[in-house]
Design a protein around this nucleic acid. Sequence first.
DNA 1: TTGAAAACTACCCATTCGGGCGATTGACCG
DNA 2: CGGTCAATCGCCCGAATGGGTAGTTTTCAA
Lengths: 209, 209
Amino acid sequence: MAERSIQVCIVDDDDLIRETLAMIIGGTPGFEVVSKYTSGDEFLDQGGCTDEAVILMDIDMPGTRGTDCVARYKSEHPDAQVLMLTVHEDIEAVFESLRAGAIGYMVKHTPPARLLQAIEEVHLGGAPMSPEIARKVIGSFHPNTQNPLSEREVEVLRMLCDGENYKTIAEALFISANTVKAHIKSIYTKLHVNSRAQAVQTALKNRLV
Amino acid sequence: MAERSIQVCIVDDDDLIRETLAMIIGGTPGFEVVSKYTSGDEFLDQGGCTDEAVILMDIDMPGTRGTDCVARYKSEHPDAQVLMLTVHEDIEAVFESLRAGAIGYMVKHTPPARLLQAIEEVHLGGAPMSPEIARKVIGSFHPNTQNPLSEREVEVLRMLCDGENYKTIAEALFISANTVKAHIKSIYTKLHVNSRAQAVQTALKNRLV
DNA sequence: TTGAAAACTACCCATTCGGGCGATTGACCG
DNA sequence: CGGTCAATCGCCCGAATGGGTAGTTTTCAA
């Protein structure tokens, strides 16, 4: 029984890159370029592509940025499989893309063979990433080693995140509510915040707990 | 100039798997098994290994679990490179390991060639993951599609996360503080929480904002 | 058209929070 | 030995929060 070719859609404003990619992919058995777009806006306006296709999306494009393009398209096509391509490894752009719904992230200087492998990986349910990028993404899970808080403060902050009040925290740590308050004041100072909500946000985003 | 072999340390309680891995890795040019341990406790007690080595750590072991072992070891050796191995793809164990400081995650039924490649990838600064696992990890960045909140409530929640108070939110959204309060009440009900801190935690952990 | 949900507004009230000021003890460091 | 910092505790007070109750209007789907 014949294997179905993997359908690929390319969105890139750079003519040379787009056509080169199309040629490489289209010329490889088992792959098929079903559509090409020269901008994110064109992609969105003209209906994108089938949900089965793997979408190669450039991140630096004039008009709608690749990241926003993914977010907009994903809201209409939740099953779309988007593989981002970029020239530089701006880590913030990576996270933005992932939050928008991209499933993989490759730098553009990736050898063609590896890129084809990545497309196939997406098609088979993986999430290919260039090594440098993967390392950074995984690093975002790691606990912050430069935690300015003392151990006791981390304990308090942990309970703060769970929505406990002075009294409850005090009882759990066998100290007075006034002391809890003192710890919280100290936490606020160190984190440069002045409310529980901000403290929780900072704690979770910077992996302090 | 001669390439230096990649040093590998193996921690696994299963004799067959451990010795098989050691044989495969040790028998491959460019790789060298520098130490083997039969449990996490043994690994920790006997000082582990050099920081240059790639550590293959089984996740299911009697005594100290692989995950805790990583966390404990990492606190002493922040530069340790740990690649987790597991038989089952328990996603929670994956996240626990990553939070503990692991740099990669492979399922045990991975073909030897791919495993060697993964070890090399760790050594070169990557973060190898089995495709199924990578997909789940990346998926954790994606916005929650089953957000029970209305659009307005999401707007309010977003500002709540930033620590804004009733008045500020009201001014930003051009509504009265009483309405903001009503929205927040509704948010609390839907998220089953009753404080800002809990709401922020729920919002960030479930990617509602 | 009827009903449900969302968005909007208002008021009361007890509790909680955040900021400011001050204080003691013990540990650790130079 | 003096200095710094973490951890502990206390008090005052104005502002913010959470819960309860009670409406109107709009919007959208059945």
